[in-house]
Design a protein around this nucleic acid. Structure first.
Length: 317
DNA sequence: AAACCGGGGAT
DNA sequence: ATCCCAGGTTT
C-alpha cells in the first residue's frame, strides 16, 4: 500500500529511505497504533490547560505516570493556575510534592509559575525560547508543552522516543548514553511538517515507547513496527553501550540522606533543632553535607530563635 | 561529557 | 540486587 507524498502527515525534511519503508510509513504506522491504544490520561483531557500540561511534564521528569497521575489531580485542584502556585507558600508546595522525587523540581515549578506570572501575564508561552527560559524547563519539556498544550510542531525527544528510533531505525537495543546533535537532527527529520501531524507523532511515538517498545521487556509481538524494525530484523542484538552505563547507587548516598531529612521536615509542623535530625540520619559528616546542600538549594531554611539557642531548621515558608 | 539530584515498583 | 522512569542544571 502506498501513501501519497502529499499526505498531511508528510515528514518535514527529506524522506528517509530505509530497507523496510519510508519515514512516512513509520510515522503513519505509529500514529495509527496510537489512535487505538492511547491511554486516557488527565493531562490529555479536552479541558486541560497549558499550565496543567506543563505541571504534568515537570512531574513526569523522572517519575513514572502511575505515581504522577493522582498527584497531578490533587495538585491542579489546589493550584489550578500559575498565579495560584506562584502565591503558594513553599512549604505547602514541598509537602504536596511529597515523595515524587527530586524536590528541586517542585521548587523550580514554583519559580516557573512566578516567571509565567511576571513575564507572561500568567499565561504559559508557546514560544520555544520563552519556554526554555523558564526554570525547570529544558529542551524536552519546552518541546512537549509546545506540542501537547498548543498543538505546535516540535521535536519531542524523550527517553521513549530515543529508544523507539534507536531500535526501529538504527537497529540498536538502546540509544546512546548521551543524546547527540546528530540524534536530534535525525529525530527532527522524522517529524511531520504540519503542526497537527507533528503533535500526533510526538504523542504516539512516546506512547509506543512507554507501552510497547519498553526498555526492559519490549512487546514486539504487538508492535506496529515489528515488520519494519531494524532491531528486530537484526535479531534483537544486545546493548552495545552496556559497559558504559553506570547506574547511580542509592543506599547510603547523599541523595538518600537528603530525602530522609526532607521527609522529616515535611512531617514536622514546627522548626526543629539539629539533634532532631538524628531521627532521619545519624549525625555524621555526610548528614552535615546533605543539610548544607539542602540549605544551598533553598529546600531548607535555618533560623536563629535567639543568640543563645541553637539554630532551627524547617521547610521554607 | 559527566555528576548530581528521590523514590518506588518491576524484574 | 539491579534497572527503569515524559530530564534539568551545574561543573
Amino acid at each position: 500500500m502506498t501513501r501519497p507524498a502529499s499526505s498531511s502527515s508528510r515528514v518535514g525534511a527529506t524522506l528517509v529511505a530505509t530497507d523496510a519503508g519510508t519515514a512516512a510509513d513509520l510515522v503513519a504506522d505509529v500514529v495509527g497504533w496510537y489512535d487505538e491504544h492511547a491511554r486516557d490520561l488527565p493531562w490529555r483531557a479536552p479541558d486541560r490547560t497549558p499550565w496543567g500540561v506543563l505541571v504534568s511534564e515537570v512531574m513526569l521528569q523522572q517519575t513514572p505516570v502511575v505515581r504522577v497521575e493522582p498527584a497531578w489531580r490533587a495538585w491542579m485542584e489546589r493550584w489550578p493556575t500559575p498565579a495560584d502556585l506562584a502565591a503558594a507558600p513553599t512549604a505547602d508546595v514541598l509537602r504536596a510534592w511529597d515523595r515524587l522525587g527530586y524536590p528541586r523540581r517542585a521548587l523550580r515549578l514554583v519559580q516557573c509559575a512566578q516567571a509565567v506570572v511576571e513575564r507572561h501575564a500568567g499565561h504559559v508561552p508557546d514560544d520555544e525560547d520563552a519556554l526554555l527560559a523558564l526554570p525547570g524547563v529544558g529542551a524536552y519539556t519546552a518541546a512537549a508543552v509546545r506540542s501537547f498544550a498548543f498543538g505546535r510542531r516540535a521535536v519531542v525527544l524523550d527517553t521513549n522516543v530515543r529508544r523507539v528510533l534507536a531500535r526501529a531505525v538504527d537497529g540498536h537495543a538502546l540509544p546512546a548514553p548521551t543524546q547527540t546533535r546528530a540524534e536530534v537532527a535525525r529525530a527532527a527529520a522524522l517529524v511531520p511538517a504540519d503542526d497537527a501531524g507533528a503533535a500526533r507523532w510526538a504523542q504516539a511515538s512516546m506512547e509506543l515507547g512507554a507501552l510497547v517498545c519498553t526498555a526492559r521487556s519490549p512487546r514486539c509481538e504487538v508492535c506496529p513496527l515489528v515488520s519494519s524494525c531494524a532491531w528486530v530484523a537484526a535479531g534483537r542484538p544486545a546493548d552495545q553501550h552496556a559497559h558504559r552505563r553506570r547506574t547511580q547507587a542509592w543506599a547510603g548516598t547523599d541523595r538518600q540522606v537528603r530525602g530522609r531529612i526532607m521527609a522529616l521536615l515535611r512531617e514536622s509542623p514546627v522548626h526543629v533543632p539539629e539533634p532532631v535530625l538524628d531521627e532521619a540520619w545519624p549525625a555524621t559528616p555526610q548528614r552535615a553535607r546533605a543539610l548544607a546542600g539542602l540549605l544551598a538549594d533553598g529546600l531548607v531554611v535555618e533560623s536563629q530563635p535567639s543568640p543563645d539557642e541553637p539554630p532551627l531548621y524547617a521547610l521554607p515558608a
